[in-house]
Computed example of a mutant assay.
Amino acid sequence: MRKREPWTTWLMLGGRGAGKTRAGAEWVRGIAVGDPDFAEPPLGRIALIGETFADARHVMIEGPAGLLAIHARSERPSWSPSLRRLEWPNGAVAQVFSAEDPDSLRGPQFEAAWADELAKWRHPDDTWDMLQFGLRLGAQPRQMVTTTPRPIPLLKRLLADPLVAVSRAKTADNADNLAPAFLDIVVGRYAGTRLGRQELDGEIIEDRPDALWSRETIELCRTDHAPPLTRIVVAVDPPASSSRRADACGIVAAGIDDGGIAHVLADETATGLKPPQWGEKAIALYRRLQADALVVETNQGGEMALQVIREIDPAVPVKSVRATRGKYLRAEPVSVLYAQDRVRHVGAFPELEDELCDFGPGGLSSGRSPDRMDALVWALTELMLRETPLPRVRML
């Protein structure tokens, strides 16, 4: 018998259609029939736990990637729905349970378990606890969890447990087995949004309690297209240096419509660029959007930042801004604009939105500089919190 690895739980986080069910079913098949890559000898007592009994039956067992579909005919288990029981020709048995009824797991005992869509369970902690008490047979009881993640406490504890092996899969990783229309429509529509990052990329997306922005607020302000805009600016937050360890150069574009609603149009923040490079990048965005001005923070580098722009294109109108208050105090009135439903995000800007939802009184939790947020704050401050020139309407 090959030496066992130290993990006791295999946690597979994945997006919709990423192949989680197939992976769980293949693992159960392997341990039930004694496949040397999974278990040797076979494990004879297995628990299958779904969100509901109907989910367990229609997805884990009878579904197109479920247990009945993936076995060769000679080793396929017999299925007794009334008994909620699968039995393999070699005598291995799997019992089916619903996470709606944690007490149903009292009494039975197992060598292995497959728990599907744990993050959607109605009673996650109670069901999980009862399952752990039942995993008491064999030399090393093991369990597999397949789920699209949500930020529930149980899932966070599993991710922090050194005895939990974690795998991740995105919907796009399984593109060969998905309908092209699904990828074009669903992935195209939700990619980069909070829902898309959770349901397609398998990420756990959380809010920071003391952050100025929330995920819910940003999702409510998302739109696909911008209306005609009366003024557009590109804001630049230059790094203090051009070394490898320098902060990013924040480059964010936004415009305002004739109703006074701001629209965030682009985030082209970049790292590792020398001054001429970030200058060219900002001017290229200015030209592409037919913007009215570049707004450049001059605290870092002072006149050097303005000189960089002038050397590339002296005709570009540049407005210099200087921070006289801390980042939090500058950002707070801009976050209020979001709360007042006066800002829209045209599409998704995952990295920018991550910074917004992780920025609190002490800055970002990572300790990094919030360069994307700074550029956004300068852009929206210029458009909405200062007096602006007379508008001119352009179509994007």
Results as ranks from 00 to 15, higher is better:
Ala165Asp: 13
Leu265Asp: 02
Val33Ser: 05
Ala226Pro: 06
Asp101Asn: 14
Arg22Cys: 08
Thr324Ser: 07
Ser74Pro: 04
Gln143Ala: 10
Pro227Met: 03
Ile46Tyr: 11
Val321Thr: 14
Asp101Glu: 15
Glu111Trp: 06
Met304Leu: 14
Pro209Cys: 01
Leu137Glu: 10
Gly14Ile: 01
Arg84Asp: 05
Ser78Met: 14
Asp201Phe: 08
Val28Gln: 13
Phe349Asn: 01
Arg76Phe: 08
Arg197Phe: 06
Glu280Ile: 08
Gly15His: 06
Arg150Cys: 11
Phe97Lys: 04
Pro275Asp: 05
Met144Asp: 14
Leu105Tyr: 13
Ser335Arg: 07
Ser78Lys: 15
Thr148Ile: 04
Asp129Val: 11
Glu5Thr: 14
Thr193Pro: 10
Pro180Cys: 09
Pro317Glu: 09
Ile70Ser: 00
Asp257Gln: 09
Glu203Pro: 07
Phe97Gln: 07
Gln300Phe: 10
Gly107Tyr: 12
Leu337Ile: 01
Lys281Phe: 02
Arg168Cys: 03
Val166Thr: 13
Ile232Gly: 07
Gly367Gln: 03
Asp354Glu: 09
Glu387Tyr: 09
Leu285Asp: 03
Pro151Thr: 13
Lys170Glu: 14
Asp210Ala: 14
Pro239Ile: 09
Trp7His: 15
Leu265Ser: 03
Trp114Ile: 01
Ala323Gln: 12
Glu355Lys: 07
Glu206Asn: 05
Ala305Ile: 00
Gly19Pro: 05
Val59Asp: 12
Asp161Pro: 08
Pro162Cys: 00
Glu40Arg: 12
Thr217Gly: 12
Leu396Val: 12
